[in-house]
Design a binder for these strands. Structure first.
Lengths: 204, 204
DNA sequence: CAGCAACTGGACTCGCAGTACAGTAAGGAG
DNA sequence: CTCCTTACTGTACTGCGAGTCCAGTTGCTG
């Protein structure tokens, strides 16, 4: 029972590392079982097929990411109670965190899943979708708090602005992957921060 | 000779449509040859392997994309000679174009390639990289022209700002794919436009 | 008519996903 | 102490898709 949890987690760890490095499709089950030191039979005991693995990975990843955002903005809130400054500090922390991550942060998982769409079943795609919608809601809420204090200088769609956080991170990660540079994502976040500063500049 | 060009193009057309719809890995050669009405042998006559196909697709796509940007911003320039307004009009045109594209525009190809990295050889990855660097240069140049007339209100890294055009488009397309909505990319571009408006607001 | 370009078609290898199932070691419930 | 379940191991097999090899065909071209 405990064994089960251990092995399952070990499979997920190994699979996640491999998938982040080279993509889902390029990661063979053979390789995962070798890394986790189990048999092929053992793998299929835990996961019905590769789809089930993808689903479990996504679920775990989304939880981690949410906890990370919770933590990041909680720390930011402690540093400054103003919603705008809290957001700016949170994004700064996010940018710093991204820079410290050597081989690109997990955000990839979302884009990766999105781009291999047909490889996955409906369950996986829905999970992906829900995670992004949750982030939209989260950031939209924060931007509305800000807008209650700072009148935006230009009219903006709050849903789209919420999405822009995810979009800028994902876009930055795409650039980073393709360019094989290491700080594009954090630079993009820093630019997004200057946007917010300009958008919400004078308090009401 | 003409036949060759025809068939090659037909293969590329079919492959591109399939890859955009469901990803490179999920597109089998079997399916491509069925669509192009040739034999498997015929396919391998034109392309050494799937990698060569990917490379050819990317080359073609990058050319099309560059031509598209040339055209878009040339039209924008005709409408307004001021560099800032030219950029704003160009982005508006880009956003409109993206909205009119039913199943996501080719931009995907870049992200798609980036996320299936290890599947491809160095040639493909380098092509991808060069294309993004070319866009960085292109937009950076345009932003410098703008900055010569409009002092930026906040200090920004011009390379990063250039990348932000690609990043916002790619990020928007990731969202669009994952959410199965249809105008996220164009909305993100419109938000980026308001950023530029705010950043370069008062003329020197 | 020779020769090359542009194929067709079939047979084969290989790697990987997934199935099937028989067997086993360890721990708890009765 | 035995029975049962959980968490596996190990092997053997199917099926698919990529990629190779190659012999043969068709059509234009010098």
């Amino acid at each position: 029972m405990d064994q089960k949890a251990d092995t399952r987690t070990r499979i997920l760890d190994i699979a996640e590392a491999a998938v982040l490095e080279k993509g889902f499709e390029a990661t063979s089950i053979e390789e995962i079982v070798a890394g986790a030191e189990i048999s092929r039979g053992g793998f299929f005991y835990h996961f019905k097929d590769k789809n089930a693995l993808a689903r479990a990975m996504l679920e775990r990843y989304i939880e981690v990411e949410n906890a990370l955002y919770d933590d990041l903005f909680a720390r930011a809130r402690e540093l400054n109670d103003d919603p705008l400054h809290c957001m700016l500090i949170g994004l700064k922390l996010l940018a710093e965190m991204l820079e410290e991550m050597p081989t690109g942060h997990p955000g990839c998982v979302i884009a990766s899943t999105a781009y291999q769409d047909r490889l996955f079943d409906k369950g996986v795609r829905d999970l992906n979708r829900k995670a992004i919608l949750a982030w939209r809601k989260r950031f939209r809420g924060m931007f509305e708090e800000i807008a209650a204090v700072y009148e935006p200088r230009e009219p903006v769609n709050m849903d789209a602005l919420g999405d822009m956080v995810s979009g800028v991170v994902e876009g930055g990660l795409v650039l980073q992957r393709a360019l094989r540079e290491h700080n594009n994502a954090s630079e993009q976040i820093m630019l997004f921060r200057t946007y917010l500063k300009l958008l919400f500049s004078p308090p009401k």
